[in-house]
């Protein structure tokens, strides 16, 4: 049981070691295109509702 758990744990972290930097890079590359700051972007439905 422990062996299986360890193998799964190792496999998951190998995958995350690739996935997490990729996600951060994707976010970084998307950054120059985000012209409006987050609170303003999110406020759109709130303002529309009013």
């Amino acid at each position: 049981m422990l062996a299986g758990h360890r193998k799964a744990h190792r496999a998951i972290w190998r995958a995350l070691a690739l996935l997490i930097p990729l996600i951060l890079l994707a976010g970084w590359f998307a950054r120059p295109h985000a012209r409006v700051d987050l609170p303003e972007r999110l406020s759109a439905p709130r303002e529309a509702g009013r």
């Binding site: 951060l24 994707a26 976010g27 970084w28 998307a30 950054r31 409006v36 700051d37 987050l38």
Partner: peptide, 9 residues
């Protein structure tokens, strides 16, 4: 966070 708060200009 990467596609939200980190996108601040």
């Amino acid at each position: 966070v990467a596609f939200g708060a980190l996108l601040a200009p």
